[in-house]
């Protein structure tokens, strides 16, 4: 499966930065922010297979 390649401590920092960015952007712009972020990250992926895998993963998570 896809790996972001972040160390545990980088992952923690990424978590903090994303949480703080969400707080900064505010609830009303949350959707646009997350969609923009997803698109930016997709643009940095190696190919569509990885993008599809990430979408599938996030869809499953959202269904829970």
């Amino acid at each position: 499966m896809m790996s972001l390649g972040l160390s545990d401590s980088d992952l923690e920092q990424a978590f903090d930065r994303l949480a703080q960015a969400l707080d900064a952007v505010g609830e009303d712009k949350e959707r646009s922010f997350l969609a923009a972020l997803a698109l930016t990250l997709a643009g940095r992926m190696a190919g569509l297979t990885e993008v599809d895998a990430a979408i599938a993963m996030a869809l499953r998570a959202a269904e829970r």
Binding site: M1, S3, L4, F15, L18, A19, Q20, A21, L22, D23, A24, E27, E30, M57, A58, R60, A61, A62, R64
Partner: peptide, 19 residues
């Protein structure tokens, strides 16, 4: 809220992802 949203995402993903 930012932390709450992120935590929920982390937990939902962790059900079947080690990430």
């Amino acid at each position: 809220r930012g932390y709450a949203v992120m935590r929920e995402a982390a937990l939902r993903l962790a059900v079947d992802q080690a990430l």
